[in-house]
Amino acid sequence: MADEIQRLVLPILRDIQARLGRVEGRMIDLEPRMTAQEQHLGGLLTSLPASHDRIDDLTRRLERVERRLELAESV
């Protein structure tokens, strides 16, 4: 009886082991890609405030030009 159970269960366990090996391989492949994505996102988050500062500066300059040319609407 134990031999019959072993004969039935052993192929299933080998299949599970093979599948886990493939999953592990894929995880190992994904790890460097995730690290690269995290670094890229970190760079974007670092440069975002600088972009906002430049946009704010351009907005102030445009408002000043509009006032000097009397193009701004009176509020």
Rank of each mutant, 00 (worst) to 15 (best):
A2V: 09
A2Q: 08
A2L: 13
A2I: 11
A2H: 08
E4T: 12
I5W: 14
Q6D: 15
Q6N: 12
L8R: 14
L8Q: 10
L8T: 00
V9I: 12
V9K: 06
L10H: 09
P11Y: 07
P11F: 10
L13I: 13
L13C: 14
D15F: 09
D15E: 13
I16E: 04
I16L: 14
Q17S: 15
Q17T: 14
Q17C: 10
Q17M: 13
A18Q: 12
R19I: 07
L20V: 08
L20S: 06
L20T: 06
G21Q: 11
R22P: 03
R22G: 03
R22M: 08
V23K: 02
E24D: 12
R26V: 03
M27Q: 06
M27P: 01
I28H: 03
I28M: 01
D29L: 10
D29P: 01
D29V: 08
L30G: 00
L30A: 07
L30N: 02
L30T: 01
L30H: 00
L30S: 00
E31A: 12
E31D: 12
P32S: 02
R33S: 02
T35C: 00
T35M: 03
T35D: 07
T35A: 09
A36C: 00
A36Q: 10
A36N: 02
A36V: 08
E38Y: 04
Q39N: 14
L41R: 06
G42E: 07
G42R: 12
G43N: 10
L44G: 00
L45V: 03
T46K: 14
S47W: 02
P49Q: 01
A50I: 02
S51D: 07
H52S: 06
H52F: 13
H52V: 11
D53A: 10
R54P: 01
I55P: 02
I55G: 00
D56C: 00
D56A: 14
R60I: 05
R61A: 13
L62F: 10
E63R: 06
V65A: 04
V65H: 04
E66G: 05
R67I: 08
R67Y: 11
R68Q: 15
L69I: 07
E70R: 09
L71D: 06
S74I: 15
S74W: 14
S74V: 15
S74T: 15
V75P: 05
